[in-house]
Amino acid sequence: MSCPKTEHLLQEYLADDLTAVARDEIEKHLLDCAGCHSELETLLMTQASLRGWQEQRVPHWNRSLNLFQHEQRSAANARVWSAWQWLPTAASCAMLAILLLNVSVLNDEQGFSISIGGRSEAKAGLDAAISALQTQQRAELQELVTRVEDRLDSNSVSLLRAVMEQTQQTTAENFEQLYAYFEQQRLLDLQDMRVGYEELVNSDYETIRSLQQLATFVSYEGNVR
C-alpha cells in the first residue's frame, strides 16, 4: 500500500456523516487505487468479524427497585458520613486560622465583637510576652550549651587522664627495665674491675718478688767478694 491518501480517505469513508458527493469521490478513487481498495476490504472484513459477536444471556441478578432504593440510601448515608469525616480537619483549620490571624473575641455590654489582628495594647503585651519568652529560651539554650560543653570537657579530661595513666604505667615499666639493665652492667663492670685489680696486684707482687730476689742475689754477691 503506497497511496498517501489511504488513511484520510478511509477514515472519512468509515464515518457516518459523509455527504453523497464526498462518498462518490472516494468511491471513484477506490476504483482506481488498488492499495486503498484492498485496505478498505480488509478493514470492512475486520468490522464484520467483530459484528459476529454472539449475544450472551445475562446471568440471574436482582434488578428489583427495592434493591436500587436500598443501594441509593446506603450510598447517601456513606456520603453523609464521609462529609462528617471532614469535621475534625475543618475544626483544625479553623483553629489554625484563628491562631495565625490573631482573632480576638470581645464580650462587653455593647455585645460581641470579633477583631482580626488584635488591638495595639494587646499586641504590645503580646510582643513583651514573646520577647520575655525569647530571652528565657535563649538563657535556657545558653545553659544547655554550657552543660553540654562541661560534659564534653569532663569527658575529655577523663580520657586524657586515662591516656596519661596508661602512659605513666608504661613509662614506669620502661624505667624499671632500664634500671635493671644498668644495674646488671654496673655489676659486670665491678666484677671486671676486681679481676683487673687482682691481676694488677698479682703483677705487682711478682715485681716485688723479683726485686727481692735481685736484692738477695746482689747481697749474696757482695758477701762472696
Binding site: 477514515q11 472519512e12 464515518a15 478493514l43 472484513m45 475486520t46 468490522q47 468479524s49 467483530l50
Partner: peptide, 15 residues
C-alpha cells in the same frame, strides 16, 4: 474518527 480508524487498523493487523 481517527481513534476508530487507528483501532480498526490495529485489529486488522493483529488478525
Amino acid at each position: 474518527k481517527t481513534r476508530f480508524y487507528t483501532a480498526l487498523k490495529k485489529l486488522k493487523d493483529i488478525a
